[in-house]
């Protein structure tokens, strides 16, 4: 459980870096880029969560060795 939490926190940290850099790339204006970050961050995390859920479901249905 601790390992899962550690990896989740590390993933959230890396996500934050990706979102900050993507936001900077998308908008040359600092104020606009900073304002857009929280929404982008939530969208990124939710999207990754959906992809992870689909992958886990696919693994459970088609690739499970149990």
């Amino acid at each position: 459980m601790t390992q899962l939490l550690t990896h989740t926190l590390l993933f959230v940290a890396l996500s934050a870096a990706i979102v900050v850099m993507a936001s900077f790339y998308s908008d040359p204006d600092d104020a606009v880029a900073f304002r857009a970050m929280p929404r982008r961050f939530v969208v990124f995390l939710v999207s990754c969560g959906i992809v992870a859920a689909i992958m886990l479901l696919a693994e459970h249905l088609f690739a499970s060795v149990d």
Partner: peptide, 12 residues
Amino acid sequence: MAGLLNVLAMLD
């Protein structure tokens, strides 16, 4: 990832 994200900084 630090290196790859620097590509975005270069493009910016």
